[in-house]
C-alpha cells in the first residue's frame, strides 16, 4: 500500500472570465475515502469538479492523481486515468436511450472488471426496466442513476459527485445514500460536493468547507456536523 494520497490538489486557482472562482485551493482524497466539499451556492464546488476532470482549462496550480500530474490533460485522458465525473446538471444525452447512455461510458479495449454491467445493475436495480427509455423521459432521480451508472462503466478509481442530491425528493436521496455505500464497499474513492449536510454526513468521512473559492475549514465530517459555529458561519441560512 502506498501512503501518498490518491488525489492531491494544491494551489488551484480558477477564473471565470475575470472572476476568481477558486483561490488557491489545497485538498486531498486518500484511497478508499469519501470526502465531502460543503458550501453554499456559488462557493466554487462545481468549478472544482470541472477543474479536476479537465473541463476547465483556464486554471493554475497542480492536480496529481495516483502520483501523476493531470492538470493539463484533456478530459478524456483524465477519465482514462481513472477519474469519473457525475456533473451537477447530470448531462444525460436526452436523445439517446438509457442503454445508449451507458454505452458511451463503456470502455472498449480496456477491461473493466470492477464494474461490469451486472454489478452496476445490482446497485441500481431500477435501471433494468429503464434500459430502452429515451433519456429525455426520466425523472431527476432516474437521470441521476443513469449518469452514475454511466460513469462507473468507465472503470474509475475515484468518482466526482457534484451535488447528487440536488432537486431530488427526500426518499430518493435516502436511496442514493444506500447506493453510494455500495460503491464505497467496492473500494471506490469519492469526492462529493453537497449543500445538503445531512446527506453528506451520512456517507463521508472527511469534509472541506468551501466559501467564496477558499477552504475555510477541513477536518473529520463529525467535527463539522457537530460544530455549530462553523455550521452557522458557512452553511446555514
Amino acid at each position: 500500500m502506498t501512503s501518498s494520497p490518491l488525489l492531491e490538489v494544491s494551489g488551484l486557482v480558477a477564473r471565470y472570465g475575470k472572476a476568481r472562482v477558486l483561490d488557491g485551493l489545497d485538498l486531498t482524497v486518500n484511497r478508499g475515502e469519501t470526502v465531502a466539499i460543503l458550501g453554499r451556492n456559488g462557493a466554487g464546488k462545481s468549478t472544482l469538479m470541472k477543474c479536476i476532470i479537465g473541463l476547465i482549462t483556464e486554471k493554475t496550480g497542480s492536480i496529481r492523481f495516483n502520483g501523476a500530474e493531470i492538470a493539463t490533460l484533456p478530459p478524456y485522458k483524465v477519465s482514462r486515468a481513472g477519474i469519473g465525473y457525475v456533473p451537477e446538471e447530470r448531462r444525460i444525452f436526452t436523445e439517446l436511450t438509457v442503454r445508449e447512455n451507458l454505452e458511451v461510458g463503456r470502455l472498449r479495449g480496456r477491461s473493466n472488471t470492477r464494474w461490469p454491467l451486472d454489478r452496476i445493475i445490482e446497485i441500481f436495480p431500477n435501471l433494468k426496466r429503464l434500459l430502452d427509455r429515451p433519456g429525455a423521459q426520466m425523472s431527476g432521480g432516474e437521470q441521476q442513476m443513469v449518469t452514475m451508472a454511466r460513469t462507473l462503466l468507465t472503470g474509475p478509481d475515484l468518482i466526482l459527485l457534484d451535488e447528487p442530491s440536488e432537486g431530488l425528493a427526500p426518499v430518493i436521496v435516502d436511496q442514493m445514500a444506500g447506493m453510494i455505500r455500495d460503491m464505497q464497499a467496492s473500494g471506490l474513492s469519492i469526492l462529493i460536493s453537497e449543500q445538503n449536510m445531512r446527506f453528506a454526513s451520512k456517507i463521508s468521512q472527511r469534509a472541506y468547507l468551501l466559501e467564496r473559492g477558499e477552504i475555510k475549514f477541513s477536518g473529520p465530517m463529525q467535527t463539522i456536523a457537530t460544530n455549530q459555529e462553523l455550521y452557522h458561519a458557512h452553511l446555514a441560512v
Partner: peptide, 9 residues
C-alpha cells in the same frame, strides 16, 4: 464535453 469526460477521445 460530456463525451470527453466519459473517456472518449
Amino acid at each position: 464535453d460530456m463525451v470527453g469526460a466519459l473517456g472518449v477521445n
